[in-house]
């Protein structure tokens, strides 16, 4: 499959065909321990690894992530001289914690590059199906929908002459979220009818359009992650 690129509004997840989503899930688990107990070198290796992996999926996402991290680092350097102030110090610490866990967030971003169907196929292989599987599919299906709906509601409010106000929080909440929640009810009913009619309740083995297998690349990545974990734990013991 050739790489078509996001500018054609086509999801460019072709490389995900080669990397098993469960590998990324595994790396998230490993890195969460590495980042908690590991040292400086382990952190930078984890960050470089995660960024490199994201680059395989999307240049745009990698660049935006690096830019975000660079901005946060810049803010940290600017705030450092003022650590005496409690307020500044607390913002500083929070940003540092975001930086600390950024390799995991980057891996999460890489995971979101897969289509929901591909993720379900992977989770089904390890026995995660049913409500959780539907939940994950709906998550990816519905996340873009939320911003579209909120924009439509915003347009509707402008036309009606209703204004959001921080001094009227309950009214503002009612204006935005009541139409959104009714839309949720409608969409969930239609979605359910649709998947019922597509045989989701069929009591037979489910197959997958996407091939989910362990390749040499997956094994190599997991070994790399475990070596990093080993190096982090070595220092403790």
């Amino acid at each position: 499959m050739s790489y078509k690129g996001e500018k054609n509004n086509i999801n460019s997840y072709q490389l995900s065909d080669k990397i098993n989503p469960l590998t990324i899930v595994g790396l998230i688990l490993l890195f969460s321990v590495v980042l908690t107990v590991g040292g400086e070198y382990q952190y930078w290796i984890a960050l470089a690894f995660a960024s490199g992996l994201l680059l395989l999926f999307s240049l745009r996402k990698t660049l935006s992530t690096i830019l975000t991290l660079a901005i946060i680092w810049g803010i940290l350097y600017l705030l450092k001289p003022y650590l005496g102030s409690v307020f500044v110090g607390s913002i500083y610490t929070l940003l540092l914690i975001i930086i600390k866990f950024s390799p995991i967030f980057i891996l999460g971003r890489a995971l979101s590059s897969y289509s929901s169907s591909h993720l379900i196929a992977a989770f089904r292989k390890i026995g995660i199906d049913g409500g959780i599987g539907i939940g994950i599919t709906v998550f990816f299906r519905f996340i873009p929908e939320i911003s579209i709906r909120m924009k439509e509601i915003n347009d509707g409010m402008k036309i009606r002459g209703f204004k959001a106000s921080i001094f009227k929080p309950i009214k503002t909440f009612e204006l935005y979220f009541v139409p959104l929640m009714y839309k949720c009810i409608d969409i969930s009913d239609t979605l359910t009818c649709s998947i019922i009619s597509k045989g989701i309740e069929y009591d037979g083995k489910k197959t997958s359009f996407h091939e989910v297998k362990i390749t040499f690349i997956d094994i190599a990545m997991m070994i790399g992650g475990m070596i990093l974990l080993g190096a982090s734990l070595w220092k403790i013991f």
Partner: peptide
């Protein structure tokens, strides 16, 4: 039932966001 699961999934996405 499936109806309930899908409804919970949709609302939990809103709740999560």
């Amino acid at each position: 039932n499936l109806k309930g699961i899908v409804k919970i999934a949709v609302f939990s996405v809103i709740g999560f966001v």
